[in-house]
Measured scan of single mutants.
Amino acid sequence: MATVKFKYKGEEKEVDISKIKKVWRVGKMISFTWDEGGGKTGRGAVSEKDAPKELLQMLEKQ
C-alpha cells in the first residue's frame, strides 16, 4: 500500500494511505487526518507537488 511521507513539528513521519480518514486542500497544501489507534487522531500536511497520486485521488472523491 502507498504511504505519505511528511514532516510534522520537525519530525519525519510516514503514514499508510489506508489509515487516512479525511483529506482537504489548504492553498497549495494537502492536509489530512488519520487514525493512530487508541482513539487518537493524527494530523499532517504535504505540498501538492509531493503528494502521492492516491492521496490526490482521495481528495477528488470528496
Results as ranks from 00 to 15, higher is better:
residue 40 K to E: 12
residue 24 W to R: 03
residue 61 K to P: 12
residue 28 K to L: 08
residue 11 E to V: 13
residue 25 R to S: 06
residue 21 K to I: 15
residue 40 K to L: 12
residue 25 R to D: 03
residue 50 D to H: 12
residue 61 K to A: 13
residue 14 E to R: 03
residue 9 K to T: 01
residue 43 R to V: 13
residue 18 S to C: 13
residue 17 I to D: 01
residue 33 T to G: 04
residue 1 M to N: 14
residue 3 T to L: 07
residue 7 K to S: 05
residue 50 D to G: 07
residue 46 V to Q: 03
residue 58 M to D: 03
residue 49 K to N: 10
residue 3 T to V: 09
residue 48 E to V: 07
residue 45 A to H: 06
residue 3 T to I: 11
residue 9 K to D: 06
residue 9 K to E: 06
residue 1 M to L: 15
residue 32 F to P: 00
residue 60 E to S: 12
residue 9 K to N: 09
residue 59 L to G: 03
residue 27 G to H: 10
residue 37 G to V: 10
residue 41 T to L: 11
residue 9 K to M: 12
residue 56 L to M: 15
residue 20 I to F: 08
residue 30 I to D: 00
residue 42 G to H: 07
residue 60 E to T: 11
residue 1 M to D: 07
residue 1 M to W: 12
residue 44 G to A: 14
residue 52 P to F: 02
residue 41 T to N: 09
residue 6 F to K: 00
residue 46 V to I: 10
residue 12 E to I: 12
residue 54 E to M: 07
residue 7 K to N: 08
residue 23 V to N: 01
residue 40 K to D: 12
residue 12 E to D: 10
residue 37 G to I: 10
residue 10 G to H: 03
residue 56 L to C: 14
residue 44 G to W: 14
residue 41 T to M: 15
residue 54 E to G: 05
residue 25 R to C: 15
residue 32 F to Y: 00
residue 38 G to D: 11
residue 54 E to Y: 04
residue 26 V to C: 15
residue 57 Q to K: 10
residue 5 K to W: 02
residue 4 V to C: 01
residue 53 K to Q: 12
residue 38 G to A: 09
residue 50 D to I: 09
residue 26 V to E: 07
residue 24 W to M: 08
residue 41 T to D: 14
residue 35 D to I: 11
residue 54 E to S: 07
residue 59 L to Q: 05
residue 8 Y to P: 01
residue 2 A to C: 14
residue 19 K to P: 01
residue 12 E to C: 13
residue 13 K to D: 01
residue 16 D to S: 11
residue 13 K to S: 02
residue 9 K to R: 07
residue 43 R to F: 11
residue 24 W to A: 03
residue 49 K to S: 05
residue 58 M to L: 12
residue 55 L to R: 00
residue 37 G to T: 13
residue 54 E to R: 05
residue 44 G to F: 15
residue 31 S to N: 08
residue 14 E to H: 05
residue 29 M to D: 06
residue 42 G to I: 06
residue 39 G to F: 07
residue 62 Q to M: 07
residue 44 G to H: 06
residue 19 K to D: 13
residue 21 K to T: 11
residue 15 V to A: 03
residue 29 M to N: 09
residue 27 G to M: 14
residue 54 E to Q: 08
residue 52 P to S: 03
residue 16 D to L: 13
residue 23 V to L: 08
residue 36 E to H: 09
residue 61 K to F: 11
residue 28 K to D: 10
residue 6 F to Q: 01
residue 51 A to E: 01
residue 7 K to I: 09
residue 58 M to Q: 05
residue 25 R to E: 04
residue 4 V to Q: 00
residue 35 D to N: 14
residue 7 K to P: 05
residue 28 K to C: 15
residue 30 I to V: 09
residue 49 K to E: 05
residue 49 K to R: 07
residue 57 Q to R: 07
residue 26 V to T: 06
residue 14 E to Y: 04
residue 50 D to V: 06
residue 35 D to G: 04
residue 55 L to Y: 00
residue 59 L to E: 11
residue 19 K to T: 09
residue 6 F to C: 04
residue 22 K to G: 14
residue 58 M to N: 04
residue 11 E to H: 07
residue 62 Q to G: 09
residue 49 K to G: 08
residue 49 K to I: 12
residue 3 T to R: 09
residue 55 L to C: 01
residue 24 W to H: 03
residue 22 K to L: 13
residue 41 T to A: 08
residue 25 R to N: 05
residue 52 P to I: 07
residue 13 K to N: 03
residue 47 S to I: 14
residue 48 E to M: 05
residue 3 T to Q: 03
residue 62 Q to L: 11
residue 26 V to Q: 06
residue 34 W to Q: 00
residue 8 Y to T: 03
residue 7 K to L: 11
residue 53 K to F: 12
residue 11 E to K: 11
residue 59 L to D: 03
residue 53 K to M: 12
residue 22 K to D: 10
residue 49 K to F: 09
residue 59 L to S: 10
residue 28 K to N: 09
residue 15 V to M: 05
residue 31 S to P: 04
residue 13 K to F: 08
residue 50 D to K: 04
residue 12 E to Y: 11
residue 7 K to V: 07
residue 15 V to C: 04
residue 54 E to F: 05
residue 47 S to E: 15
residue 18 S to W: 13
residue 28 K to M: 08
residue 28 K to F: 08
residue 32 F to M: 03
residue 13 K to W: 05
residue 48 E to I: 05
residue 34 W to F: 07
residue 59 L to H: 05
residue 23 V to M: 11
residue 50 D to M: 09
residue 22 K to F: 15
residue 16 D to R: 05
residue 15 V to Y: 01
residue 19 K to R: 07
residue 50 D to Q: 14
residue 43 R to M: 09
residue 37 G to R: 06
residue 20 I to V: 06
residue 23 V to I: 05
residue 1 M to Y: 10
residue 26 V to G: 06
residue 44 G to L: 05
